[in-house]
């Protein structure tokens, strides 16, 4: 392969926005370097590391991107993605606990304490989500009404469609849940069933195809469709935030809420960990391997989310300076 071809291949490690700005000149430098030192693993490793760093910077997780306001928005989007992953797994664990309460009272202290802590945390996240979404919906809606936000129409429609699918599917399969109807917990049975149905895809049955095959076709389809709907909702919301030119005051407000969300994340994680570590209780409240995996995923999402929130604060400060 020619030096130009090798340089072009190396440049692809960097994100498109970076390549648009630095791609040509960086390729020229690489060609000169390759002609001088035809074989260099250190150079390849350095370019790969730089490319990954640029991609993380573009996602608002570290480093510096040229567009400070854009990087703040990227950090907020990354935080929203981390929060969605965190809450997806957290809701799966929470729904197990609340569903358990519909059948019988917990005999273990860990399950009781975990249900109280996780329910409080979920309520806090619900309030934060409404507060965070309100100004974005307002700004995006105003732009659309004034016909200035044509590029917001598709992502907004995707969010609405995905939310409708999640709501309809969650209601349908939640209603089909074979509960006793004897509500014993402090979370309403309908809400517990909806949460359980919405997070049906977080299941250890994926590792047991023969058992999975015995599921009704509709339920299997929902287990495949529901995470896709959530991913579409996140992607649509991310595109809306990136394309809507959010005023600086709104960005500052969202960063404050991000800080509050980051403070609530450890509470939900602690509640889930406490339940898993407690381990005792009736079979209904017995944690499984999928719950341990969920907690590991939640911990990773928490770390990445905290990093994104910190980066958003730093970049907003440096952009204001």
């Amino acid at each position: 392969m020619t030096p130009a071809g090798r340089a072009a291949r190396l440049v692809r490690w960097y994100p498109r926005s970076w390549r648009d700005r630095y791609g040509e000149e960086f390729a020229e430098l690489l060609i000169a370097d390759i002609e001088e030192r035809p074989r260099s693993r250190a150079r390849t490793a350095d370019v790969i590391r730089g490319g990954i760093g640029a991609r993380l910077a573009g996602a608002g997780l570290c480093g510096f991107a040229a567009d400070a306001a854009g990087q703040v928005r990227a950090s907020l989007v990354s935080l929203a993605c981390c929060l969605s992953i965190f809450l997806g797994f957290g809701a799966a664990i929470w729904s197990q606990l609340t569903i358990g309460w519909q059948w019988s009272e917990s005999s273990g202290g860990a399950a009781t304490a975990a249900t109280i802590v996780t329910s409080a945390a979920m309520l806090a996240f619900l309030v934060l989500a409404v507060l965070a979404a309100a100004p974005v919906v307002w700004v995006a809606g105003r732009l659309i009404v004034r016909r200035q936000g044509r590029d917001l129409l598709v992502p907004a429609a995707v969010v609405l469609a995905a939310a409708a699918v999640t709501f309809a599917g969650g209601r349908h399969f939640g209603n089909g849940w074979p509960g006793t109807g004897a509500h014993r917990g402090f979370v309403p049975g309908g809400l517990a069933a909806f949460s359980w149905a919405s997070t049906l895809s977080v299941s250890s049955y994926w590792a047991h195809p023969s058992a999975l095959a015995a599921f009704p076709a509709g339920e299997l389809a929902w287990m495949a469709v529901s995470p896709l709907a959530v991913v579409c909702a996140i992607a649509g919301a991310a595109a809306t935030v990136r394309r809507a030119d959010l005023p600086r005051a709104v960005l500052r407000y969202e960063i404050r809420l991000a800080g509050a969300a980051c403070a609530a994340m450890p509470a939900l994680l602690a509640g889930c960990c406490y339940w898993i570590a407690g381990g005792e209780g009736t079979p209904l409240f017995h944690p499984g391997a999928i719950d341990v995996l969920a907690v590991i995923a939640m911990a990773a999402a928490l770390l990445a989310g905290h990093r994104a929130a910190r980066q958003a604060r730093l970049r907003l400060t440096s952009a204001s300076a």
Partner: peptide, 16 residues
């Protein structure tokens, strides 16, 4: 300076 390191620093210096 390796190319990736050079351009990472250049991008930061330019952003600042």
């Amino acid at each position: 300076l390796a190319p990736g390191t050079l351009y990472e620093a250049l991008a930061r210096l330019e952003a600042q």
